[in-house]
Design a binder for these strands. Sequence first.
DNA 1: CTTAAACCTTACCCTTGCAGTAAGGTCAAG
DNA 2: CTTGACCTTACTGCAAGGGTAAGGTTTAAG
Lengths: 128, 128
Amino acid sequence: MKISEVAEKAGLTVKAVRYYENVGLIPKPARQQNGYRSYDDSVLPILNLIHRSRAAGFSVDECRELIELFNNPARHSADVHELICQKVEAIEKQQAQLEHIKEHLIALASRCENNEKSTCSILASLTK
Amino acid sequence: MKISEVAEKAGLTVKAVRYYENVGLIPKPARQQNGYRSYDDSVLPILNLIHRSRAAGFSVDECRELIELFNNPARHSADVHELICQKVEAIEKQQAQLEHIKEHLIALASRCENNEKSTCSILASLTK
DNA sequence: CTTAAACCTTACCCTTGCAGTAAGGTCAAG
DNA sequence: CTTGACCTTACTGCAAGGGTAAGGTTTAAG
């Protein structure tokens, strides 16, 4: 398989696949005579794992941990469970922050004159 | 005022103040004989605006828009209101995404064996 | 047979919002 | 006189690739 083919099968871009190789997430593939990367199917589970966990908000470094667990036959499923739960907590923290900011903005907006004049209590409040 | 003084008054780092100058958010200040930047109080409202709106999730470019409105005596307060509301909508979009991801992760975790064995339906699901 | 499209390669710059560091100048206190 | 706390510019780095250049290859069509 050439790179565009694995990329498409995994739902990734060619650029991304080469990037994951550069940062060591996936092993360096064999090369054809012409220098083209030559993949076999064994890379697909890892690429799928990367694609899905990136989409689920994991950083590339966190993907690395997941891949190590995936590659480790002596892993405990509880370790994977733990990683997922940590991510859920991180997301909840982020949600709380966003909620906080949103409420602040809504409070600002509600005090706004919202008309064609230049007097603006939002700007007044933000520059104080 | 020297740079560390304005920075502290606005709750910013010296680095950040110089950065905002470089990207044109604040005007280039006068210089003392020794080359040190010399600020007067007029920069403080702008720095406060930057500090608060950055904390509220605005990008530096969005801060630029706010500053332009702040500097424009012919502004309409409705325009400021509009910017805030757009930001609120963006935050809500982000919240919805996070919620989506979180639910996905929770669903994964709930199906996990969560024990000392290596069989892991999370990894199975992510690599499929 | 030739050419153009569609691949592939490496390598470098761009993004965001600064922080860190180097290498140096300046200023006040002890 | 020296130490320490400031200040200056300038360069590098972070995340996670995207965009582009400049070139080699292959394949389908004319």
